[in-house]
Design a protein around this nucleic acid. Structure first.
Lengths: 335, 335
DNA sequence: TTGAAAGCGCTAACAT
DNA sequence: ATGTTAGCGCTTTCAA
């Protein structure tokens, strides 16, 4: 593998000049620039990013931290990130945190130690403030699928309140009056927001919020199934809004095991529109979010910050993407 | 962040000694070793992996190359890899290749440029030989979910011939005589092997192989659906063995759209046992492979090679994991 | 057992 | 517009 020295020698210039040319500095003459680039081409030279990293304290790798790649929501987000990052010359390091604060912290340490340029973070819990404020300049962070009220960390997510509102509003428009809600982990801003949207829609329609109709979970299919099974023993709502599709699957299982049917006995509404939602029977009515786009825009925002600093104003702001109601077979009009 | 210099100064030794102690060289006195490690502990010092990488030409990151993380098979493999790698102090860079040779080549270049220590490679097509033979010492490769006949690259995969054989044998044991096969991309060794197993089982039971009953695909759900729909217009086998579960879903769709039912009109057998296979209706009978284990063992093999060189003999050999028949609802006894 | 010194490949002042 | 020099944080000869 050729080094910058080889190119310098062949071009009859110093390594500094080659470095300047390669990094697009303006003070290089056209002639030498061309000479250098021709050589680079000819010998297929690529700068050693490790050596560069030693100086700049940064390597062109971005870290992605998510709860669990096995959760069908994340692979799509990841594709969006990887596609965008690769196009801009960045690679992606991926870490799972299993919804555990300890692993999140550990992930952060690993990533810092590896000098990644920046972070894309889908935190499962409310982000711990200390870590995030520490050298924010050295390692910019963009939150995904979550945001933080107090800290001003830019985020790319959806408007969860509005989205849940739309979902429940739809259920109401179908004539449902007794609507339960399976909430996610309420340590999570996203889960809280979806519950807020649920409440708002209810109150907006003159229906009183009933805390008995709320099932608290940890966002997993298993828990959703267990809690649902218990719940339906006691309560008979005509509809249920589930905070994500994976839990809706758990809810389906419970309903079927109890000998009930969807949507005849109960309408089920999910959220996210993951891959399986259109495959399960009955097909799940849900709110679609464009997961790939989410990843792409988050990566774009981070890389903009990395490459251009904070000159671009929208590297500092958050983005709230729209969601879309997908009507399928799991909901019905109630008489 | 403290550097090796800081530790050296505090310990009253040279940086060389600190380096030696940290790298477990034997020629450091117990006293100084302890002094150094105490300091390391106290100041939470971690060596800068970039600086180290500049010398060793390696960074403690391993590259993972797969066709598409959105394909539900891979997230689980990835979890296995990440868990194992993290435990051993390695991070993981992930690249998608979309079943395209060009992107595979590009991925390899990126990874080399970033000086990753080694590669875990789930190649979609038969690996291109040139790239793999080039400096194999510098960047060891372990193949996943695939292997290569001619090149002696160690692999971690399953015995696809045996697995497909078992699958089809099961169908035969149910009394089926006319069994179709949806094959994967036959540029791929895995796809070819599964077809071989299919043939062997047939011939083993005195049933002649009929090429009309083979559907060639690119491993995607969409293609599987299209080809199935055409196929079932002309042929009426009583069973079909699909080379993977994602295509089985496509096959389901085709069958349902044609107004047929599973397993009454046709038995469907998949392969892999991905997440959705136990969720779809009817639940899919399939061959389970332990994807997480696959990833874990592949990572373990690679890291063993990285850390211990080729002294450990099983860094050179391939591993063929067993699969397991999972009987569910999509297959039935035929009379 | 330890230290001094060189150098990995690159960038960034500081000169010219 | 270009070259010289120093140095990023670490490992690794070579000496002692």
């Amino acid at each position: 593998m050729p080094t910058i020295k080889d190119i310098a020698k062949l071009a009859n210039v110093s390594t500094a000049t080659v470095s300047r040319a390669l990094n697009g500095k303006l003070d290089v003459s056209e002639a030498t620039r061309k000479r250098i680039f021709d050589l680079v081409e000819e010998f297929d030279y690529t700068p050693n990013s490790i050596a560069r990293g030693l100086i700049t304290k940064k390597i062109n790798i971005i870290g992605v931290v998510v709860p669990d790649i096995v959760n069908p929501f994340y692979p799509e987000v990841f594709r969006g990130i990887e596609d965008e990052a690769r196009g801009k010359g960045y690679s992606v390091i991926y870490l799972n945190t299993d919804y555990e604060l300890g692993k999140e912290r550990e992930a952060l340490v690993m990533l810092k130690q590896k000098s990644v340029a920046g972070l894309l973070w889908a935190s499962s819990t409310t982000i711990f403030e200390g870590e995030c404020k520490k050298d924010p300049k050295n390692m910019p962070i963009i939150l995904m699928d979550n945001y933080h009220d107090k800290l001003k960390i830019p985020a790319v997510t959806i408007d969860n309140v509005a989205s849940a509102f739309t979902a429940v509003k739809y259920l109401l428009s179908l004539g449902h009056k007794s609507i339960a809600h399976i909430a996610g982990n309420i340590k999570n801003q996203t889960a809280r927001d979806r519950m807020v949207g649920y409440k708002m829609a209810l109150e907006n329609n003159g229906i009183e919020f009933n805390s008995d109709l709320i099932l608290y979970t940890d966002y997993t299919q298993k828990t959703a199934k267990e809690k649902s099974k218990q719940f339906f023993g006691k309560y008979k709502p005509t509809a249920i809004f589930v905070a994500n599709d994976i839990m809706a699957v758990g809810c389906y299982e419970a309903i079927f095991e109890l000998g009930m049917s969807i949507p005849e006995d109960i309408s089920v509404m999910g959220h996210d529109d993951i891959y399986i939602s259109s495959i399960i029977k009955p097909k799940l009515t849900t709110m679609r979010q464009d997961k790939r786009e989410l990843g792409k825009l988050a990566a774009r925002k981070l890389i903009a910050k990395l490459d251009d600093g904070d000159s671009d104003p929208n590297t500092q702001t958050s983005l709230f993407l729209p969601t879309k109601l997908i009507q399928r077979e799991s909901t019905r009009i109630i008489d």
